[in-house]
């Protein structure tokens, strides 16, 4: 089963009595794009937080490329090649765009840190940061402070920082949240390009975007996995239509 890059077994996480993620068993195939769908509070972000090591599971296990990563902290998970972007912009606002990405790239520096050599003299890391800025479309903003940019650009930087660490598997928590139409198109284009070389797992409410990039869907409701499969399969599923649309009706 070497084409399975990531899998979860009976993964659970509860907060007090609330089962945020309840007994989720999922397999992610290499180089496909997965979209996790579900109404608010379905446990999508908690799932991503579990996969990235941000929070520890209450039960079950996670395997990444034949390695058990269930209890690894976020920094160790990141070092294995799982990158993530956050739903709420999570950047270094008073650093320049370049420094945001450079710091991300620097995390992959081999061996221990140097205490005396200037950080900017590591050419490979600078190049990695520049490449990430180029991919997320912020090359022009290289020397701009992150806090001085528009919200949409900060969202792009969020993705750029993730890319600068050179991950194999990308976990994207609502990459399009709060973006304008133009910016959304750019990011969807970027996701498509990334999909050629990476495995993507994304949470997204924008259905057009989901259908444009996703190969597989996973639908969650109340912490449970309701349905998985190809876009057509999930669309045809009665259970999904009832649960998902039912939940929507409540609004």
């Amino acid at each position: 089963m070497s084409d399975i890059i990531l899998e979860t077994q009976n993964l659970s996480r509860h907060f007090g009595a609330l089962m945020a993620v309840d007994d989720v068993t999922l397999q992610f195939e290499r180089s496909l794009v997965y979209a996790v769908l579900g109404p608010n509070g379905a446990g999508k972000t908690t799932l991503i937080n579990l996969l990235s090591g941000e929070i520890m599971p209450s039960g079950g296990s996670i395997r990444f490329k034949d390695q058990d990563i269930t209890n690894l902290p976020a920094n160790a998970v990141s070092q294995l090649g799982i990158g993530r972007s956050f739903q709420k912009t999570n950047i270094f606002p008073n650093f320049t765009c370049f420094e945001n990405c450079r710091l991300a790239a620097q995390s992959r520096m081999k061996g221990s840190f140097s205490f005396f050599k200037p950080a900017l003299s590591y050419r490979q890391i600078n190049q990695q940061a520049e490449r990430a800025l180029e991919m997320c479309g912020l090359s022009m903003r290289c020397h701009t402070l992150a806090q001085a940019m528009s919200y949409g650009e900060q969202r792009q930087l969020e993705i750029g920082m993730m890319l600068a660490t050179g991950p194999e598997l990308l976990l994207l928590d609502e990459p399009l949240a709060g973006m304008g139409a133009d910016e959304s198109l750019k990011v969807i284009e970027l996701l498509r390009r990334l999909a050629k070389e990476h495995t993507l797992i994304l949470i997204e409410h924008d259905m057009d975007a989901v259908f444009a990039v996703a190969d597989r869907l996973a639908v969650m409701v109340n912490g449970r996995l309701l349905e998985t499969g190809t876009v057509a399969e999930v669309r045809a599923s009665k259970a999904v239509q009832e649960a998902y649309l039912g939940a929507e009706d409540e609004h």
């Binding site: 941000e54 976020a74 920094n75 999570n90 920082m161």
Partner: peptide, 14 residues
């Protein structure tokens, strides 16, 4: 970086 955003530093692998 740790001073500004500790959580993100961890998420980036530090």
């Amino acid at each position: 970086g740790v001073k500004v955003n500790e959580g993100r530093m961890r998420a980036m692998g530090y």
